[in-house]
């Protein structure tokens, strides 16, 4: 008799546990709505152009001179915007350039995305650099004003593998002194759906 009672009690407690315990409404299908939207800041290119290093040897004082274009052009590998990940998962990329100038001359800096074969792709980007106040003064800072590379632009740049940069330098004078410092970053707005 006692045994029966014990089993009845066990059954009762088990039933209580099974019915009292529950899992309130859970929706694992929400996983489909998970979107990672981190924003990453990363350095881009940097450069320094000191006018003194570029005056041809033997140039007399107060003499005009020019710098060969190849000295001021460069091409770097940059295929991040052309990867599948970028096209599929980047909302946009913002490129920011900051140019500090102490040379009392205005410049233009250009850059252009290129295909692997070196063909220009997308628009040509320009930064107008304000003239500086001379060596030893606080640099005059110019910022880029680029439109963000949105998803449509990134699609257009899908075959980009390189970036060509160039500093457009007017005729200079050998008495000029100062430096041009280019600093830049890229801000990547990720939109990654699980």
């Amino acid at each position: 008799m006692k045994i029966k009672k014990t089993y009845a009690l066990l059954l009762f407690i088990g039933a209580i546990l099974m019915t009292a315990s529950c899992v309130k409404e859970l929706d694992f299908e929400q996983l489909d709505e998970v979107v990672l939207t981190p924003v990453f800041e990363a350095d881009f290119i940097y450069s320094e152009f000191d006018i003194e290093d570029n005056i041809p040897q033997g140039t007399p004082p107060n003499t005009e001179f020019t710098i060969p274009p190849e000295v001021l052009r460069d091409t770097i590998n940059y295929d991040l915007v052309g990867t599948d990940f970028a096209i599929d998962n980047l909302d946009r990329v913002e490129l920011t350039m900051e140019v500090r100038n102490t040379i009392p001359v205005a410049f233009t800096i250009q850059f252009q995305f290129l295909t692997q074969a070196g063909q220009p792709i997308g628009q040509l980007y320009n930064i107008e650099v304000l003239a500086g106040l001379g060596e030893g003064t606080e640099p005059v800072i110019s910022f880029s004003d680029f439109e963000p590379l949105n998803n449509a632009t990134l699609n257009e740049l899908a075959s980009a593998q390189k970036i060509a940069t160039e500093i457009i330098v007017p005729t200079l004078n050998s008495d000029l002194r100062g430096a041009l410092q280019i600093r830049s970053k890229a801000t990547y707005y990720v939109n990654y759906q699980l």
Partner: peptide, 15 residues
């Protein structure tokens, strides 16, 4: 340490 890519590219500063 990474500070971006220095231009102009030379033998000393790779990319």
């Amino acid at each position: 340490a990474f500070e971006g890519i220095e231009t102009p590219i030379t033998d000393d500063n790779g990319q």
